[in-house]
Amino acid sequence: MEETIMPSKCKALIIGGSAGSLDVLLEIFPLLSDEIDFPIILVTHRKSGNDALLSDLLRSRTKLKVNEAEEKDKIQPGNVYIAPADYHLLIEENETFSLDYSEKVNYSRPSIDVTFHSAAEVFKDKLVCILLSGSNADGVAGLKTVKSSGGLVVIQNPKTAVMPYMPQQAANEIEGGIILNANEMAEFINKLYSYKTS
C-alpha cells in the first residue's frame, strides 16, 4: 500500500456493501484493532426486520461498540454504527445522524450513495469509504463525490467479491481508488489508525 495517499487524519470510515458483503464484514471485524479512534459506519442493503441480527453478529466479533445509528446521535470515535433497514442515513454538519424515509435510490433504502454523498460534504478529505461486494451500482456515484472531495476511496477487488458487479463498476469509473482483496481490508483499516498516531 502506498502510504503517501493516506489522508492526514481519518475522521470517519464508511463501508458500503450489498449482496455478498456480509461474509467480508464477518472476516474483517474480528481483526479490527480495539484502539481504532474513528467511527465506522456501515451501510448495507438488507431486508427490514433483521436489524438486530447484523448488530449481534458483529458485536460478537469485536470489542468496538456496535449500535444501530439513531437519529440525532452524535457520531463518536471508536464506535460502529449500522444504518437501520429501510431508512436513508445522512450525516449533518455537526456530525450527528439524520434518518430519512424518502424514495429509494438505486432501488435501495438505505442507499450507499446517499450516505457517501452526505458524508463527503461533512468530512471532505478526512473521509475514507470502502465499497464491497454487491450486484447493483449503488455506491459508485457516491464514491466519485468522495474522491472529488479529497477523500480516500477503497474498492474490494471484484475477483474476491461474491457479487463482483458493484466493485467492478466502481473500479471502472473511479481513477485512483485503492483496490484491496477481502483479506487485506482489516489490516488497511487498522493502518488508518496507526498512520494517524505515528
Partner: peptide, 10 residues
Amino acid sequence: YSHASIKRRI
C-alpha cells in the same frame, strides 16, 4: 428542519 435532509431534497 434537519439540514442534511432538506438540503438533499432541494
